[in-house]
Design a protein around this nucleic acid. Structure first.
Length: 472
RNA sequence: GCCCCCAUCGUCCAGUGGCCUAGGACGCCGCCCUUUCAAGGCGGUAACACGGGUUCGAAUCCCGUUGGGGGUGCCA
């Protein structure tokens, strides 16, 4: 009976969830869903020095926000420390590990002295040291032979054992390192596929060697995903690059757009259809098809995907999703009220949810500020004709029925009156609407004018038109 | 330095020996549509890193060069 695939996402709570980590969870999740397997979470909090437990909440929250559900309760590696120590003891008893009291400085000094490669030289291998406050437990790596493994993304990868230094299994403070805990937990949890970032490739032979030395028959299939890089083609770093998932959420990206875009980093559907529902991606996704080369995280393309997913929303859903970005309390309610009648028109014009509120603020606020550049471009440049247009519009709108078509007709007529016509005497609204738009909205770009005026109301429209006329 | 990996348009992906005068998407440019801006339609720009093989035939296989990335921690 074939084993059900079981994968894990194993973040360490030393930073917020960033897009690199998010992509890793996503690929684990896609694989699990595609194969009918399960994905578990394991918080790798063995480094007590740098852990920030509160970050675990952020990581979990972001994974949930992305809609990637895990199976069961998240496991905290720190709860399993006894098991890790037992494994360490076993290794020590089998003489596959030994105590070492060299300080990092001593290790570095010796490496420099001998002029060879940096790294630990096995100095304490046969010194027969016992445990102590300043001793760490190191794994005795084989001096010859090679360790290789199959990688779904990269094929066979092989390392000469002699290039592997004797690495630390247990720190001098008694806590197990990632190398030990990671392997032991994967084995205990029955992980069948290890799907993680490329940065773990060189640690894989160590993982395998510990497992063998422990007599564990744990031989998962590996899939090392290409790293995500920035414009400089360097691995995305939380420090250098602003890539926290929470930041994208706060900028108004939709989780479905994030997930859709990230799925295309290192993978692509054969049919070339990029924008598609998650369900279809689950169906098509295969780890074997993941490309091995680094991928650039292109925010512009992400934005395009976001705009597409926003446009796929119906009016009701759009308002719902935009709500957190409309403002707090009464102000938020007021924004929502003016947005609602224009929902579709606004939705088709934004790339980010944060752009919604600024686009309709002129409808909500009593006072508007007129953008200088827009004034120059849409009003001042037209000189006398702008004044004529405003006069004509003020007159035409005074007693017209306050509905879209009537307003359009009024503006068309005003344009003719003000002389904005083409060779056939037809009104040229592309220019004529400028002064009106700037006067009423404060900007040269915005939602369609006639519909906006309907929402604005006659009084406020006329007030703003008169104010602008007075400035000329 | 050493180890491992990678190499198709600016970017992401398709392409797994002939269907490739290399396809799609983002971006960029132009035109159309148009009440601004978007959206949409149409068109365009732009790549198989280089050199050797293998083969009747190579973007696809092999070797090398160059370039890039990852690792080299008592971080994960």
């Amino acid at each position: 009976m074939p084993t059900r695939p079981r994968v894990r996402f194993a973040p360490s709570p030393t930073g917020y969830l960033h897009v690199g980590g998010a992509r890793t969870v996503l690929f684990n999740w896609l694989f699990a869903r595609h194969t009918g397997g399960e994905m578990v979470l394991r918080i790798e909090d063995t480094d007590t020095e740098r852990n920030r437990p509160e970050l675990t909440d952020n990581i979990l929250e972001m994974i949930e926000w992305l809609g990637l559900r895990w199976d069961g309760e998240p496991v905290h590696q720190s709860d399993r420390i006894d098991r890790h120590r037992a494994a360490a003891d076993q290794l020590l008893a089998a003489r596959r590990a030994y105590w070492c009291d060299c300080t990092p400085e001593q290790v570095a000094a010796r490496a420099k002295e001998r002029g060879g490669p940096p790294g630990y030289d096995g100095y304490c291998r046969d010194r027969g040291l016992g445990p102590g406050p300043a001793t760490a437990l190191r794994f005795r790596t084989p001096d010859d032979g090679a360790t290789s493994f199959e990688d779904l993304v990269r094929g066979t990868v092989s390392f000469e054992n002699k290039v592997l230094e004797d690495f630390v299994l247990v720190r001098s403070n008694g806590t197990p390192t990632f190398l030990l805990a990671n392997l032991v937990d994967d084995a205990d949890m029955g992980i069948t596929h290890v799907v993680r970032g490329e940065e773990h490739v060189s640690g894989t032979p160590k993982y395998l060697l510990i497992g063998e030395a422990l007599g564990l028959h744990h031989r998962p299939t590996f899939a090392h995903l290409p790293v995500l890089v920035n414009e400089q083609r360097k691995k995305l770093s939380k420090r250098r690059d602003s890539v926290s998932v929470a930041a994208f959420r706060d900028e108004g990206y939709l989780p479905e757009a994030m997930v859709n875009y990230m799925a295309l980093l290192g993978w692509g559907p054969k049919d070339g259809v990029e924008i598609r529902p998650l369900g279809e991606i689950v169906e098509l996704f295969r780890l074997e098809d993941v490309t091995p080369s680094p991928a650039f995280f292109d925010v512009r393309k992400l934005q395009s995907f976001n705009a597409d997913h926003i446009r796929a929303l119906d009016a009701e859903a759009f308002v719902e999703r935009a709500r957190p970005f409309l403002g707090e309390g009464p102000r938020g309610e007021a924004t929502e009220a003016v947005l609602r009648p224009l929902a579709e028109l606004v939705r088709d014009r934004v790339r980010l949810l944060t752009e919604v509120e600024p686009m309709v603020a002129f409808l909500r606020d009593d006072e508007i500020t007129i953008d200088e550049t827009s004034w120059q471009k849409g009003v001042a440049k037209l000189a006398d004709r702008a004044a004529a247009m405003l006069d004509a519009v003020i007159a035409a709108l005074a007693d017209v029925a306050w509905e879209r078509d009537a307003i359009e007709e009024a503006l068309l007529g005003a344009a003719v009156t003000a002389g904005f016509t083409n060779a056939e005497g037809k009104p040229q609204m592309s220019k004529a609407q400028g002064p009106v738009r700037v006067a009423v909205t404060g900007r040269i770009v915005g939602p369609p004018l006639y519909e906006s005026l309907v929402v604005l109301g006659r009084e406020r429209t006329l007030d703003r038109l008169r104010d602008a006329r007075g400035l000329l």
